[in-house]
C-alpha cells in the first residue's frame, strides 16, 4: 500500500500546521486527557461551551502524524456546532473509520481525507483519538464534571 493512500496532502498539512493546537483555553468548561499506551499517543483536549454549542476546542499532545492531524481536522469540523450535533458527527467519523460511508461527508470537512486510514487497521485508533476525546469531553460536560482521564487499551 502506498504512502499516498494513507497520508493525503490534507493530512500532512494538518500535521505540519495544526489548527487549534494550544496548551490551554480561556474559560474552558472541560479538559480531558486521553492516552493510548500501545502507541504512546497522548492527547489533551479542552472545550469551551456557550449556549449548548462548542464555542472553542483546542488540543495538545504527542503522537504520530495521523493522530495529530486527525485531531486538528476534528477541531475545525466541530467548532460552533451544538453539542448533540458534534456527538453525531463524531459517531459518523467513527463509522467511517470502520469502513462505512460517512452520512455527513461535507460536515466532516477535512476529516474526509482520513477515509483511507480505514484500510490500515492499526492506524484507526490513531485517527480516532481526538474524536473520542471530543466525545468524552462533551459527555463529561453533560455530566456536570470538568475533567476526565481515559486510557485506551487497544
Amino acid at each position: 500500500m502506498s504512502m499516498e493512500d494513507l497520508y493525503q496532502e490534507i493530512i500532512l498539512d494538518h500535521y505540519r500546521k495544526p489548527k487549534n493546537r494550544a496548551p490551554e483555553l480561556a474559560d474552558e468548561a472541560v479538559h480531558v486527557h486521553h492516552s493510548n499506551p500501545l502507541c504512546g499517543d497522548e492527547m489533551d483536549l479542552r472545550i469551551r461551551v456557550l449556549d449548548d454549542r462548542l464555542d472553542a476546542v483546542v488540543f495538545d499532545g504527542e503522537g504520530c502524524s495521523i493522530s495529530q492531524a486527525a485531531a486538528s481536522a476534528m477541531t475545525q469540523a466541530v467548532v460552533g456546532r451544538e453539542l448533540k450535533d458534534a456527538l453525531d458527527l463524531a459517531e459518523d467519523f467513527r463509522r467511517m473509520m470502520h469502513g462505512d460511508d460517512p452520512a455527513r461527508p461535507d460536515d466532516l470537512g477535512d476529516g474526509i481525507a482520513f477515509t483511507g486510514v480505514a484500510k490500515f487497521p492499526v492506524r484507526v485508533k490513531c485517527a480516532l483519538l481526538g474524536w473520542m476525546a471530543l466525545r468524552d469531553a462533551i459527555q463529561t460536560f453533560e455530566r456536570g464534571a470538568s475533567a476526565h482521564t481515559v486510557t485506551h487499551e487497544e
Binding site: 502506498s2 504512502m3 497520508y7 502507541c39 504520530c64 502524524s65 495521523i66 490500515f120 492499526v122 492506524r123
Partner: peptide, 12 residues
C-alpha cells in the same frame, strides 16, 4: 518523527 510514521514509510 513517531515510530508509526517511520514504520509506515519503510513498509511502503
Amino acid at each position: 518523527i513517531h515510530p508509526h510514521d517511520v514504520g509506515a514509510m519503510l513498509g511502503s
